[in-house]
Nucleic acid binder design. Structure first.
Length: 424
RNA sequence: GGAAGCGUGGCCGAGUGGUUUAAGGCAGCGGUCUUGAAAACCGCCGAGUCGAAAGGCUCCGUGAGUUCGAAUCUCACCGCUUCCGCCA
């Protein structure tokens, strides 16, 4: 959520910022609504104050043993007027709130303008895509060829966009998770957390998935109106919801491995083959809660932490600075990491690292106490470190040989009993 | 799932319809005293929000209700504790 005070005090600046996302703000309508809000609120609070004063007078008169009936008569019509004024204010406030919740974050000045992913800017490239003396197979051919990847079985169990992994491949998948967690906890200073995989609507509102993106979520049908998490960002970031943190506890750096569940509404027909786009996938997620002045430095750090995973695994990648038109709803600045997939001859996203500034913190009421003792909103960041399924895809495709055998990178061998290859 | 009890500021805790502007304590901050510290004493000490300001308003788990007036009464829900049942 944007700062409502900024919206009131400098609407043109907000409109200009959002215009960079291609969003046209109806400033006249907002100004009109704001004026109505102000009038209605002042009126409602004036009547409340009057009621409070009179009720108090009644109490005092009664204590003195006086006849309070004249006072009660005086106050008779107040209740109705008060109810009406409160209702008027509530209706306007609701409209304004709904409108505010629909507004995305304002992009940081360093974010390039653009309408879609073609406007993204490559800011870094690491590693050299291997040239294969044969035509590299895709991960589906490789995985199924080894007998370790079974989409038909998953379709039988559940439906499309799920996978069953077996044997050494299932183990490699698990090894990746352990490796990532160990790297981030031991070398990058993150605290590992284990969190619920189902969350309530308040949590999803806090991080910005609700109210706008309900279609992307799996909602449970039972008595509890819970949702399956689309990313660990939701439970982990919500740990600080409604908290006032001590300054010394910042930055808070947390890492969690969780499954992620996405309905992929609106993605019908995209990436239907293989493990690229699934309803369920594993992810190791990095979350940082930081002092506002530190958030852009933290974004660079966090992105580098995610990159370290790819570098240890020897997977070529590039870092993209997302343009205004391709950024997520709540983000002020986002880097995507894209890993090289030889079978597709292209780079594909395995991580997205974002600085939300105070956008989530405001919804979350996540604050810290500044040296003056006053609560101030924190900045929140998160990034995948990394998406496990897609990283597994990259490993298979980048480390294959002509026989369909997969070399296991050095960094993962300790987690595989020293095994050097998948398949023989 | 059944039964009982309980949700009050950072923490503990008083408060059963009206000067409650939520007592008191702990912790914290400032001061007096002290070579310094401790103790003692004095003062400060929740959050949100509206307003140009003066000054209001809201918040005692959440939401509805009763009342001129609700932390206090009613209803529903949520959470916690204990016991029973079930269970990895």
């Amino acid at each position: 959520m944007l700062d409502p005070r900024l919206l009131r005090s400098n609407l043109p600046a907000v409109a200009a910022g959002l215009a960079r996302r291609g969003l046209v703000l109806d400033t006249a309508a907002i100004e009109r609504l704001e004026a109505e809000r102000k009038a209605a609120q002042i009126e409602a609070e004036r009547l409340l104050a009057e009621r409070n004063a009179r009720s108090k007078a009644i109490g005092q008169a009664k204590a003195r043993g006086e006849d309070v009936q004249p006072l009660l008569d005086e106050v008779a019509s107040l209740g109705e007027r008060l109810e009406a004024a409160k209702a008027r204010f509530a209706a306007i406030a609701e409209q304004l709130d709904a409108l505010m919740l629909q507004l995305p974050n304002i992009p940081h000045p360093s974010v390039p303008e653009g309408v879609d992913e073609t406007g993204n800017v490559e800011v870094k490239r690491w590693g050299t895509p291997k040239s294969f003396p044969f035509k590299p197979k895709d991960h589906v051919a490789l995985g199924e060829g080894l007998g370790f990847m079974d989409f038909a079985a998953a379709a039988k169990l559940t439906g499309s966009r799920f996978v069953v992994l077996k044997s050494e491949l299932a183990r490699l998948h698990r090894a990746l998770i352990q490796f990532m967690l160990d790297l981030h906890t031991r070398e990058h200073g993150y605290q590992e957390v284990y969190v619920p995989y189902m969350v309530n609507a308040d949590s999803l509102r806090g991080t910005g998935q609700l109210p706008k993106f309900e279609d992307d979520l799996f909602k449970l049908a039972g008595e509890s109106p819970y949702y399956l998490i689309p990313t660990a960002e939701v439970p982990v970031t919500n740990l600080v919801r409604d908290e006032i943190l001590d300054l010394e506890t910042l930055p808070l750096k947390m890492v969690a491995h969780t499954p992620c569940f996405r309905s992929e509404a609106g993605s019908a027909g995209r990436d239907t083959r293989g493990m690229i786009r699934q309803h369920q996938f594993e992810k190791v997620e990095l979350v940082q809660i930081v002092h506002p002045e530190r958030s852009y430095a933290a974004l660079e750090e966090l992105t580098a932490h995610a990159e370290a995973v790819l570098e240890r695994l020897g997977l070529p990648y590039r870092r993209m600075l997302l343009c205004t038109g391709d950024m997520g709803f709540g983000s002020a600045k986002t880097y995507d990491l894209e890993v090289w997939l030889p079978a597709q001859g292209t780079y594909r996203e395995v991580s997205s690292c974002s600085n939300f500034e105070a956008f989530q913190a405001r919804r979350l009421q996540a604050r810290f106490r500044n040296p003056e003792g006053k609560p101030e909103l924190v900045h929140t960041l998160n990034g995948s470190g990394l998406a496990v399924g897609r990283t597994l895809v990259a490993l298979l495709e980048n480390y294959q040989d002509e026989a369909g055998r997969i070399a296991i990178p050095e960094a993962l061998r300790p987690y595989m009993d020293g095994q050097q290859y998948l398949g023989y």
